[in-house]
Simulated scan of single mutants.
Amino acid sequence: MSIGASIAKFRELGLLVFIVLLSIGVQLRNPSFLTWENLNDMVTNTAILAILAVGMMLVIVTRGIDLSIGATLALSGMIAALTVSAYPDTNPVVAILLGIAVGVVSGVVIGFLVSKAGILPIIATLGMMNVFRGATFIVSGGKWVSAHQMPDSFKAIATSSVLGINTLIFIAILIYIAFYYFITYTRTGRQIYAVGSNPDSAKISGINNDKILWLVYTIMGGLSGLAGVLWVSKFASAQGDTASGYELSVIAACVLGGVSIAGGSGKISGIILGSILLGILNNALPLIDVSPFWQMGIQGSIILIAVIINALVKRGVDRNNLMRRRI
């Protein structure tokens, strides 16, 4: 077995060990890191990132990318915030469904551009990112929606709990369970990986590639819309530049979790660990008084190492497959 294939087999275990060792190291530097209060805050802050990582994983698995999710998040959050500020009696569930609907529409548009119009994902999503960001400023008139304009029931979405678990974390858990079942046990879930592994073979075998691409971008849009409402509720503020650049953090969480940019591979368990690692870095580095400039450098270095490992894994797996064919 090659080195790359060996890494592929134990990659997630290695990532888990790294997270444990990193946590122990930070705890030794700052005893407040592993306190219940800090851990709860850290997981809560990571929940939105983790939700978006699920959709981004599906997109990347199909050899795509979505740079518009930060703008979609901002647009959905702004429309939900404007709605609840104008109609304070709006049920929080209705606000969440409204945000998801806005996100789904955004995802459908991008899915059409990629699957039917044949535009490269990076170009289509980059263009729509600016469209959605501009639409956010237009619907808001360039103004913010601040905490005092939002009803308490809306702000309580992020602070309430279900079965003793923070609502954001609870929603993230439900999404991970649902999508684990979807990609593992449904025909469509397996087709997503088939399209990413070899689009030509998938097409020959009868899979509708366009339909699959349209689906994954629609899912990504819906999750972005959900994240938009949760974000605005959590921070009690809706702005035109909300989550600007956040798509890069989501992509980083996927890469750290072992999702191959080349498409065809990625696991739910991997992106959970990737999101947790990114959450730990965001939380721990300030706690141990690391300079903000060094924080960016450290995060970038870890992401680069993850990309290199992914490349080694892919090379090792490809080599193993080639040897098996020859045998």
Rank of each mutant, 00 (worst) to 15 (best):
A86W: 09
Y87C: 00
D89S: 14
T90S: 09
N91H: 15
V93W: 14
V94K: 03
V94E: 02
A95K: 08
L97D: 00
L98Q: 11
A101Y: 03
A101P: 01
A101L: 15
V102Q: 09
G103C: 07
V105A: 15
S106Q: 11
G107M: 04
G107V: 01
V109T: 04
V109I: 15
V109D: 01
G111D: 08
G111V: 03
F112S: 11
L113N: 06
L113V: 10
V114Q: 02
S115M: 08
S115F: 03
A117T: 10
L120C: 00
P121F: 08
I122D: 02
I122T: 10
A124N: 09
L126D: 01
G127H: 09
G127D: 09
G127Y: 06
G127N: 07
V131R: 10
V131P: 11
F132G: 05
R133C: 04
G134V: 11
A135R: 05
A135V: 07
A135I: 13
V139A: 07
V139T: 11
S140M: 11
G141R: 11
G142Q: 00
W144E: 13
V145N: 01
S146P: 02
A147Q: 14
H148R: 14
Q149I: 05
Q149V: 03
M150E: 05
P151L: 09
S153D: 01
S153W: 02
S153C: 01
F154K: 06
K155E: 09
A158C: 06
S160R: 08
S160I: 02
L163K: 00
L163R: 02
L163A: 15
T167E: 03
I169K: 04
I171Q: 08
I171T: 07
I171N: 07
A172Q: 07
I173M: 10
L174N: 06
